[in-house]
Design a protein around this nucleic acid. Sequence first.
DNA 1: AAAGTAAACTAACAATTGTTAGTTTGTCGT
DNA 2: ACGACAAACTAACAATTGTTAGTTTACTTT
Lengths: 189, 189
Amino acid sequence: MKQETRKDEIIRTSTSLFKEKGYSAVTMRDIAKAMGIKAASLYNHISSKQEILSNIIISLAEEFTQGMAIIKDSNNNSIEKLKDIVNLHVSITTNNPFGMASLNNDWMHLEEHLDYYLQLRLNYEDNFRQIIEQGIINKELSDSNAEVMLFSVLSTLRSLYIWIPDKEDLQHVNLSANLSNVLLTGIIK
Amino acid sequence: MKQETRKDEIIRTSTSLFKEKGYSAVTMRDIAKAMGIKAASLYNHISSKQEILSNIIISLAEEFTQGMAIIKDSNNNSIEKLKDIVNLHVSITTNNPFGMASLNNDWMHLEEHLDYYLQLRLNYEDNFRQIIEQGIINKELSDSNAEVMLFSVLSTLRSLYIWIPDKEDLQHVNLSANLSNVLLTGIIK
DNA sequence: AAAGTAAACTAACAATTGTTAGTTTGTCGT
DNA sequence: ACGACAAACTAACAATTGTTAGTTTACTTT
């Protein structure tokens, strides 16, 4: 663990503000005030407001990409892979729930890195879809619409950031297992 | 069907812009330009930017509240009620997918009506939770964590707006049934 | 033709935006 | 004590923001 630089501190503070009001509604003066300094001082450490957003989003997107690559290439069956994906989301979201808000809601304000982000996301979704389709072929998953399955599971996983900061009683492992169960086997008895 | 007033037209245009960039990033001049008029002209029909957002969000929130009231008071069992809730979301989202983006992402920028909105939302979630808890008591639903179930199902339903405009091949009824199936019985064979 | 009205316009405002330039302050190794 | 450097500051900028005031345009009703 490297210790936190001033730039890291700016990013951490901004992340918290962005999740509450969204990127566009947060001003450089808001960020500065939250750190007890003046807006101009921020520019000793970062080059633009954009850069803060890129740092938050791209690093998270790359975490997902890397996690997915490992899961995809493993020798696990489809169901185990899906459980790993759930765990990946719970893990990343627990470490940075506020950043996940930006990833979900503010990605369209990326300018320079927008194309790169979209590429990562598309790739992630494709891998996810392939795992589900393989599960159907292997008769591990029920033979209903793969798109509906993908959408349903991914929607829940993407919304974790709203929920995780509030429910600290359910720990990591427990939440991941519980969620896998609900997503995979449903809620009906 | 009443015919569309100029104010309705402003709201409709704004709804589309808000879903693409979010409320804060859309200017009155953006809205005006999209309608082929000048920003000042908008004020012949609306009193503020705020009013546009309130109109979009509050009307949708009230639709959900009314729909939930009917479902709650029906004589259906828990599973039928849950299917009705899925159908409610699919129905409202299909009619106004872009408005659902504001409901999900821009509610925090409500000023005057923020408290009212939060009250509607809390009430909705409470009713949803009670239906799930009753389902567990009746042994219609499996006895796992009710909060995880609520979160999982509601997250998927709230994300429908991202998805519905793209997948027009799956019709209303079909999507609703398919989604109910996945949410209730899971994806495992 | 006159009057009324809905809905557009031009021009401007005060406030706020991201950002830059140049300067001061405090801490550290020499 | 001295120089270097990181990191804060003040002051200002050009552009953009939501909004207002007053005016013009084009129909419709009288």
